[in-house]
Design a protein around this nucleic acid. Structure first.
Lengths: 201, 201
DNA sequence: TAATAAAAATGACAGGTGTCATTAGTATTT
DNA sequence: AAATACTAATGACACCTGTCATTTTTATTA
């Protein structure tokens, strides 16, 4: 009997998956969570064999939960289940030695099959993602550029960012100018768009 | 036996919902679609009693499919099932006399219950949305402002927009300036954000 | 026909944005 | 000690943005 925890913020999908997995004789859902923080508490308590994590959740992302699981050396298998085929996410997942990375565009039987496979030590990655992984563009931005770009994403202006980071506004503009060049776009907004799309910030 | 068509672009959710609904004795899924265009073909062919439509799908949105159903005077009940509690979407749905407007954050049993209720002529709206409906801010933007703001959303610059619409760039700036004032924000990007969030563009 | 409203354009202003060349301080390496 | 690279700052330039007052043109209405 495989003990599973599932973390997914959309109740409709979470509930549906649970109902269907419970119909399989060898699977048992030992807990469900609607956000990352809840998921971590649950996993600590239930010690599941497999946990299925959505990436984009409130409080803690699925990748952050995965990092915690690995840091605590839990023997738990990890499946990331997400809508987004973003290279950055996938790269991060690989670095964390995630066991399965599955897109929400797969059939349920694929997900169930993947659970069984990873329990046997296999690794599962959705077909559409394999290509993404090979292309493997890596994040051209350094830490400072990432920080500044994140603040732009959150709607802050050059001046506000300069105050927040204790730098002059000229420096902020320089960082953004560099980011724009590295990402081969023309405005800070396009830079944010591209960086988000690639999973780089 | 209630005949149901379901249109939802995420296969995992679509498949899960179908499996679970098929377990109910009085429900029967007569067709599934992964985008709006497919959904419309299906509905014309199957003449279901109820169709469940996601809003954000490729080709045709759920609301556009709903409009087609109403224009052709099909006797089909319509349930909109979406992630987003956006006032503009809800308003449009109400104008189309949609029978149910359900958030993806509800339990499955709520959705199944809603199907039965609308078959008996009731109307179902997710609790969280009732408030949104009463607040009922309406879109302060006129047609031209909406068009310009949509182009900004798609990443076009002032100059590109002026060429596309055969207006001078000064005029585009004036329209954007007005939009910014009407939406009570400070930049064009914030204007786009707010308008999207409210379902106004 | 005259009055009114709207859509579109213009010009001017302050301030924001992106680029670039240059400088300076500070580690790190060789 | 010299070379290298990174981080931060500065000033200058052209261009973009948001605002405002004003004008022209074109429909609509009285």
């Amino acid at each position: 009997m495989i003990k599973i925890c599932i973390a997914e913020d959309q109740q409709l999908l979470r509930g549906a998956l649970i109902s269907i997995m419970e119909l399989e004789e060898d699977l048992h859902i030992v807990g469900e969570a609607a956000d990352g923080a809840e998921a971590w508490t649950l996993i600590e308590k239930e010690k599941p064999d497999v946990c299925i994590l959505d990436i984009e959740m409130p409080h803690l992302s699925g990748l952050e939960v995965a990092a915690k699981i690995r840091n605590h050396n839990f023997p738990c298998k990890i499946m990331i289940m997400t809508t987004f085929a973003r290279a950055g996410y996938l790269q991060e997942a690989m670095d964390l030695h995630i066991d399965a990375y599955v897109l929400k565009d797969e059939p349920i039987q694929y997900v169930i099959g993947a659970v069984r496979k990873i329990m046997q030590g296999e690794r599962v990655i959705s077909q559409d993602l394999a290509a993404t992984l090979f292309m493997n563009e890596k994040n051209p931005l350094n830490e400072r550029e990432i920080n500044v770009l994140k603040l732009v994403k959150d709607g802050y202006t050059t001046n506000e960012i300069s105050k927040k980071l204790f730098l002059t506004k000229g420096t902020i503009r320089n960082y953004l100018s560099l980011s724009i060049q590295k990402l081969e776009v023309e405005t800070r907004q396009q830079a944010v768009q591209k960086a988000v799309e690639k999973g780089w910030i």
